[in-house]
């Protein structure tokens, strides 16, 4: 076993031990914690400028010029490249079903290097990252952050993103790492293209920063928290709605 594999193995074992010691219930977090709002707003202005001047025009050209089949292939490949993270994190979260499904899909689509989805979307694999593993460990979500070039994150998810990247670097060879670096801008353009209408619509809103923050936090919490969290959230909203309907 090489040094880097040993390091990853130890990391997985430690995380698995901690996970076993933790209860599966998730802590409910307070809404819209944003102590860095002033700095975040400035970063958002910068990101918006970069997006409108560079990323959006490139992504629009990409959609216009590249045929849908090729775009779909690229998108599939990017998802496939990210699957090892889902496998590792599903295992750490003791979600065996997702681990097996993700592994099977990764191996099957590996025949085409992930460019073609051979099971035609029949297997639904839930995307899992280190941010969601940290949430399972009852690590608090922390303040909201607007990260330059990356966009909205919570402190916990930003830490998770760094750890995911490190995992990929530990797992892959140098040449794959170089390929990974080249894939980051393609990934950004691909995602921007897919969310083009939503992002343009957000820019038109009264306060785009708050809208992005709200969308991101709601989406992320729904992705990673249990049914209990969603039920509690719905109960609170129901009580508010019923009171107003009286």
């Amino acid at each position: 076993m090489t040094k880097k594999y040993k390091f990853l193995f130890i990391k997985c074992i430690t995380a698995a031990f901690i996970l076993n010691g933790c209860s599966s219930s998730t802590k409910l977090v307070s809404e819209n914690k944003d102590p860095f709002e002033k700095i975040n707003r400035n970063v958002f202005k910068f990101n918006k400028y970069v997006d409108q001047k560079i990323i959006s025009p490139i992504s629009k050209t990409y959609i216009r010029k590249v045929p849908a089949e090729i775009r779909s292939g690229v998108s599939n490949h990017l998802q496939w490249m990210d699957t090892p993270n889902t496998i590792i994190n599903s295992a750490l979260q003791t979600d065996m079903e997702n681990t097996i499904l993700a592994s099977a899909k990764f191996l099957l689509n590996g025949l085409t290097l992930g460019f073609y989805d051979l099971d035609k979307g029949e297997t639904v694999v839930k995307k899992r990252d280190f941010g969601s593993t940290l949430a399972r460990l009852n690590v608090a979500e922390g303040p909201f952050l607007m990260v330059p070039f990356i966009g909205p994150k919570t402190t916990r998810d930003f830490t998770g993103t760094i750890l995911d990247r490190q995992n990929m670097a530990t797992l892959s060879s140098n040449s794959i790492n170089d390929l990974n670096l080249a894939e980051i801008p393609i990934n950004i353009i691909d995602k921007r293209g897919k969310m083009s209408k939503t992002i343009d619509n957000i820019y038109l809103s009264a306060d785009p920063y708050i809208k992005i923050r709200s969308f991101y936090l709601q989406n992320r919490r729904n992705e990673i928290y249990s049914k209990q969290y969603i039920e509690n959230k719905n109960n609170n909203l129901d009580a508010e709605f019923e009171k107003l309907l009286d």
Binding site: K211, F215, Q218, N219, N222, E223, I230, L237
Partner: peptide, 9 residues
């Protein structure tokens, strides 16, 4: 829509 409440945002 996918868990994102339009009223909440």
């Amino acid at each position: 829509i996918e868990g994102i409440s339009l009223v909440s945002s």
